[in-house]
Design a protein around this nucleic acid. Structure first.
Lengths: 207, 207
DNA sequence: TACTATTTTCAGATTCTTCTGAAATCTTGT
DNA sequence: ACAAGATTTCAGAAGAATCTGAAAATAGTA
């Protein structure tokens, strides 16, 4: 009787947890960069990387944060739709579980970020365009310039926004495919991080 | 002696400045959301929307911020390559001028954001993958799961990263074109903000 | 219903970021 | 080289975001 594929030695288990913690820390750091709270990102990372449904107390213990903080974070993650509630029979607690499909997760993240980073700007630009001195046949140059610049920005972000919605929208499996195509197309060269995984073939092929 | 296209009445001028200020405020708000300082974003907005080269004191006066703040902001904007230094003959001051091509500007922004938001994560993921317990023929399930999840995330961000580099890279005029094509492709529907409008149904004509 | 486990809320404490202002440094013209 | 003008730097002040903890609200069970 030797190691079975389902039982870890304590040493391996420790390494596993160490790896998870590193992932959680990295994702948390990115969270701050993305303008979401560290705990929110860490909570998501924890649920994603373990794959386990967890309750408030488990999250508190693992991340060493307060109950209130977990409550807030979990609520936001539910809004973002990157985790969901799960009920375990015979237990009164709520459990939370992360979306396990990465592309679905990335789409949710994209959707929320667009909502916060692009939509308000587009609204503002529209409003400014309306309030600005309107262009007549002989408007002063600087008024024309203003409108041109506003329009260019709006068109730029409008295009980005349209694209992003295609990617993030409900029927938005699109870009996952489109991206793969584009990524191969010879538009330019990037230096680092080109690889689509060096690690050996995945196990269960997702459909 | 009626209005010439090059001279603004005081009333128009006031409206113009009001519009610029609104744009500056909006761009500044977005700045905070994007994780750059409000002043940095506002400085950029001011230089872009006026199109004028401006010196430190002019920026200070217009935005009501300190000299040190402007100095820092301008330095970052130069690093991001969205503004450049200009020398006016017969003046000792440095003047700063915004990149006026919107797509070039958007590429610069994208480049910097990738650098801060994606690259560090990919590096971390690589490192974690190496440090984690390696997979043998009969590794415990949870170790396999860890690697699978790490790999999926890395592949997702790797693809995004490759795409983004194509867009943002030096030869990256690419996506501007590709985006337009994709935007038309029937991958899905987006709701609002679809327009690539040229200025037109701006005022009266609702609906 | 009453009782208890669980979650939510939010005022205040803490921590992190950005900004100011003045001294130090650097630049340009004579 | 010097002086006047311009820019950078950075310690501390001001401000913003995040977190805690305990009280209030809610949901589950019997």
């Amino acid at each position: 009787m030797s190691k079975s594929p389902t039982k870890s030695s304590p040493a391996i288990k420790a390494q596993l947890i160490e790896s998870q913690d590193r992932f959680i820390a990295s994702w948390g750091r990115m969270g701050s960069v993305w303008g979401i709270s560290r705990t929110m990102a860490e909570t998501h990372a924890l649920l994603y990387i373990t794959g386990q449904p967890m309750c408030t107390d488990e999250i508190m213990d693992r991340l060493r944060v307060s109950r209130g903080n977990v409550s807030m974070s979990v609520r936001s993650l539910l809004e973002w739709a990157v985790i969901e509630k799960v009920r375990l029979p015979g237990d009164r607690k709520e459990y939370y579980q992360a979306e396990q499909d990465v592309w679905s997760m990335l789409r949710s993240i994209a959707r929320e970020r667009i909502k916060r980073e692009v939509d308000p700007l587009l609204d503002a630009l529209d409003e400014i365009g309306e309030l600005a001195p309107q262009i007549g046949s002989q408007s002063p140059e600087d008024v024309q310039d203003l409108h041109n610049r506003l329009d260019e920005i709006r068109d730029g972000f409008g295009l980005i926004n349209t694209l992003a919605h295609k990617f993030a929208g409900p029927r938005g499996a699109g870009l996952q495919t489109a991206a793969k195509l584009l990524a191969k197309a010879p538009l330019g060269r990037s230096s680092k991080h080109q690889s689509t995984s060096k690690r050996a073939p995945r196990k269960g092929a997702h459909s």
